[in-house]
Amino acid sequence: MALQFTRRAAIMAAGFAALSASMAVAQGEKVALITPYLAQPGTQFYVEAFQARAAELGWEVNVIDTAGDVAAVIARMEDVTTQGVSAIVINVDPAQVGAGLAAAAAANIPVIGMDAGTDPLVRANVTSNGYAMAAETAVYVANRIAGAGNVVMFTFDAFPPVQVRGVVADAVFANFPDIKVLDRITPNVDDGGIADSRAKMEAILAANPEPGSIKAVWAAWDQPALGALQAIEAAGRGGEGIVITGIDANPQARDAIAAGGNFEASVAQDFAGIGRTTADTVARVLAGEVLRQNVVYVPTVLITAANVKDAK
């Protein structure tokens, strides 16, 4: 029995030793980055770029993934507040972690959002400009059809980040007297958005059989654009020169753009840039700067056949 006890003590000691070894030697600022979404590809781009920039700045970064658990984000925000980190970066909607924000605020620890959302307790949110992305593709469409013709829009006003895109495209098209918005469709997104968009587009194509009666399809994100592309190709109307644009430049959209068909343009967010800029924004706050802007935008890139192979 004594043997067992000794063995157990040895195991425990070994465990604690391993634990102590895994603690980094304290140096520079301690920054905690907390996300429930680390497993998602976009998030990994932000986080890696953030870590790289933080390493240059000599910070000790603790990346905490709560694997989808938002309440755990609050718990970990409280823990790192107790620990006394210099700053907290969150990658989750601030509206869901109010208790954690309050804890950090009470301890005077600044919280920065990385593609999170705005909140009075978040010093700044670093993200892409949805308004600008929509303007890029809407103007691309207007220019390509020489400011005249029927345009089909795919929007989704129930989701605020996508709603702003629709508003901007409305304004751009309204500014061209000869552009007529034939239909403004909200596709059903339960299946991911491609299949229902395709069905809706097929109906519109059937209702407008004349070549040239539809000049362009502007979609607020890539999935409806891909659905519209499938509908146009399936209807044998790929040769009419209908211009399609999306936003987000997902891999499927890039393939379609590279193929040189009707899907001509999309906009890529600079995920790595968001991560890097978040680190720089944290650095500004730690240096004592009072940020005037509570949203910091990272430039996006219009993706067309001309740059689809080179753009990241």
Binding site: R8, M12, L19, S22, D65, A75, R76
Partner: peptide, 25 residues
């Protein structure tokens, strides 16, 4: 475990392994 290991800046994945180990132990 969650609170202490977070404060000690132990990687969140390592934390999960440790929690499982403690239960087994």
């Amino acid at each position: 475990m969650d609170n202490g290991l977070t404060q000690m800046q132990v990687d969140s994945y390592v934390r999960e392994v440790l929690v499982g180990l403690i239960i087994l132990l």
